[in-house]
Nucleic acid binder design. Structure first.
Lengths: 169, 169
DNA sequence: TTCGTTGCAAAGCTTTTGCACGAAT
DNA sequence: ATTCGTGCAAAAGCTTTGCAACGAA
């Protein structure tokens, strides 16, 4: 069921830069809340902190299990993820069952996902050409895009091999 | 809430061709069922018939409301849509709320969807280049695609205009 | 006759909501 | 002191499942 792996923003970053990255994320949240007359609570801070430290397409349930020890309720996780999405710190995708998953997007280029239906692994792929085609289509049709979802479900290399090994289809 | 509009397979087709189209769909279903040792029931036929006659991204609920008069239960609609999807007569997409929607795919080229979050309208778009990019990526990564989902959510031309008319954002 | 299929209602999941208490400003 | 946020549990969607009756082969 896909453990949450610790992951660093881009590739490997020095501690100093990491700290500033977190600070920036924190500031973005604080500003967003202030601008909307909302409050910076310990729950919102803890959840953001957790996401920044271990970021890998976590489902709400996984995220909740990880932070409930810190006293966060399930409903708060749902509610807070929405707030974080509003300030573009995270964005959601949905897994094969349609359940929500989130990933941190601050400073990360846009990408789409290949989702393995056998092991649940999620691979990120960058498709600049695809984005260009999409944008052109939308302009042409007068369609104003707000968000999109582009996921390919199938068998990853490992699971494909494992399958061929036992029975040839 | 998107009425189901009558729609003809491609553009406009003569009755004779339409009849053969339906017959072919029926045959595909019958063969699929026979091959799997399953049975051709009146419910499965009625549902297929309905979908062929009025095909437009119907949600399960809409489809159910349309055929319940004919004595089909909601569970049967869910179950039958899965069977029809297995023989490639229909395929599903999900709307902004994540609920299932189905469309007939027999003889229809692959396409993706622009979904209006204001009025629910679904526009189909063909993106051959996007498909090519996807295929290449999958081959390169050894990822064996099974199905995919590519939907852009936003405001359609009409809803965008309607919005600008009242308040400028 | 056999066994897949159906409708119904109950159960399952994920997500949302109502409410009283707690906390940020 | 306000007013928003939180946790809990209940409620709400959507989909699946158990089961006795039914019907296709």
């Amino acid at each position: 069921m896909m453990a949450l792996r610790p992951e660093v923003p881009h590739s490997s970053v020095r501690t100093s830069r990491l700290a500033s990255y977190r600070k920036r994320a924190h500031d973005i949240l604080a500003e967003h809340l202030a601008a909307k007359g909302l409050r910076l609570t310990s729950q919102r801070e803890k959840l953001l902190e957790f996401l920044l430290s271990r970021n890998s397409h976590g489902s709400i349930e996984e995220i909740y299990q990880a932070v409930r020890g810190a006293g966060l309720g399930r409903a708060t996780v749902f509610r807070t993820m929405k707030v974080l999405e509003e300030c573009d710190l995270v964005s959601h995708l949905s897994d094969a069952n349609g359940a929500l998953r989130y990933e941190v997007t601050l400073d990360r280029p846009h990408h789409d996902h290949l989702v393995c239906i056998a092991c649940g692994r999620i691979v990120e792929v960058r498709w600049p050409e695809v984005e260009k085609v999409q944008r052109k289509s939308c302009v042409k049709l007068g369609f104003e895009p707000v968000w999109h979802r582009h996921e390919i479900f199938g068998r990853c290399a490992d699971c494909g091999k494992r399958r061929t090994a036992s029975s040839a289809t």
